[in-house]
C-alpha cells in the first residue's frame, strides 16, 4: 500500500531524473550531437577531458567557491534563524523579508546586483565610500569577481536555509534553556552547549544541500561575469552548457557532467564520513 503513495513521485523521478542521468552516463562514451547518428567512442571523451585545461580551472574555481560559500551559508542562515526565532513584535515581517530573496529569479536578481556592484555608481561602493573605503571594481577584477558571486548567492540562498534552521530551532524544547538558565548558563553558553549540538542534523542537511547546489553554480556566474574576468568565474556547469548547447558536443559535455558528478559524490561521502566520525568521537 505504502508504495502506491510514492508511486507518482517515483515514476516522475525515474522519467525525468534517473533516466536522463543514466543516459548522460552512456552518452559520455559516445559522440552525440542530437542531430546526426550517435557513435560509440569509448573513453575518447575522457581522454580529451584530462587534457582540458579550462575545465580543470573551472573545477578549481568551483571548489574555491564551495569552500567559501558553504561555511558562510551556515553562519548566515543560522544567525538569521536565531534572530527571527525570538518572539517580538513584527518578527513575521523580518522572516518574510529575509526569505524574499529566495523567491526572486537568479537572473533578475543578478541584473540588480550588477548595478549595486558598479565601482563608481553602485550602492555598495557608495556606502563604503561614506566610511572612507575605496571599494574595488567588484566584477571586473579577477581577485574579487568570485567573492562577489559568493555574496550574491548567499544573499539569495540564505533565506531558504533560514527556514530549515528555524524549523529545527522550534523543535528544541524550551525546558532545556530554562534549566540551563537556572544552572547559571548565559545566552552564549546556551547557544553553544544546547542549540548548536541539537541543530546538528539540520546543519548537516544544510551543508549537504548547499554543497551539492553550489557545485552546480551557473545562473549567477553567467549573468554577472560570463565566466570572466579571465577564467576567474568559469564554472563546470557553464562549461557543460557551452559545450553541449553552443557546440553540440553532447557526448563531451556528458563526460564533463559525469566527472562533476563524481566530484560532488566524493565531497558528499566525505561530509557523511566526517559527520559520522564526529558523532562517534562524542560518544
Amino acid at each position: 500500500m505504502g508504495w502506491l503513495f510514492i508511486l507518482p513521485s517515483v515514476v516522475l523521478f525515474m522519467i525525468f531524473v534517473a533516466l536522463p542521468a543514466l543516459s548522460a552516463f552512456y552518452l559520455s562514451f559516445t559522440d552525440y550531437d542530437i542531430l546526426t547518428e550517435t557513435e560509440w567512442v569509448g573513453l575518447a571523451n575522457y581522454a580529451m577531458l584530462l587534457k582540458d585545461k579550462i575545465f580543470f580551472i573551472s573545477l578549481k574555481n568551483i571548489v574555491f567557491y564551495v569552500a567559501l560559500y558553504v561555511p558562510l551559508m551556515v553562519v548566515f542562515s543560522l544567525s538569521m534563524a536565531v534572530a527571527v526565532n525570538q518572539s517580538f513584535r513584527g518578527v513575521g515581517v523580518f522572516r518574510t523579508i529575509f526569505y524574499i530573496p529566495s523567491l526572486t529569479s537568479a537572473i533578475a536578481a543578478s541584473t540588480v546586483w550588477l548595478w549595486i556592484l558598479n565601482p563608481h555608481y553602485g550602492v555598495l561602493n557608495q556606502v563604503l565610500a561614506a566610511i572612507g573605503i575605496v571599494g574595488p571594481a567588484w566584477l571586473a577584477m579577477s581577485s574579487t569577481a568570485m567573492m562577489s558571486i559568493v555574496m550574491v548567492t548567499l544573499w539569495q540562498g540564505a533565506g531558504g536555509n533560514m527556514i530549515l534552521f528555524l524549523a529545527g530551532l522550534q523543535g528544541i524544547s524550551k525546558e532545556l534553556y530554562e534549566s540551563a538558565m537556572m544552572d547559571g548558563a548565559g545566552r552564549i553558553q546556551s547557544f553553544f552547549r544546547i542549540t548548536l549540538p541539537l541543530m546538528r542534523p539540520t546543519t548537516f542537511l544544510v551543508i549537504i544541500l548547499s554543497m551539492i547546489g553550489s557545485f552546480q553554480l551557473f545562473d549567477q556566474a553567467f549573468a554577472l561575469t560570463q565566466g570572466g574576468p579571465g577564467y576567474a568565474t568559469m564554472t563546470p556547469v557553464y562549461m557543460i552548457y557551452n559545450e553541449g548547447f553552443n557546440l553540440l558536443n553532447m557526448g563531451y559535455a556528458s563526460s564533463m557532467a559525469v566527472l562533476l558528478f563524481l566530484v560532488i559524490l566524493l565531497f558528499t561521502i566525505l561530509s557523511f564520513k566526517l559527520n559520522k566520525d564526529e558523532k562517534e568521537m562524542k560518544k
Binding site: 541584473t111 546586483w113 550588477l114 548595478w115 549595486i116 556592484l117 558598479n118 565601482p119 563608481h120 555608481y121 553602485g122 571594481a137 567588484w138 566584477l139 571586473a140 577584477m141 574576468p229
Partner: peptide, 20 residues
C-alpha cells in the same frame, strides 16, 4: 577608461546615453 565602469549600467541607465 576604468575597468568595470559600465557594470550594470544597461538599459535605462546606459553609460553613453547618460553622458558617462
Amino acid at each position: 577608461y576604468t575597468l568595470g565602469f559600465e557594470t550594470g549600467l544597461g538599459e535605462g541607465i546606459d553609460a553613453f546615453a547618460t553622458g558617462k
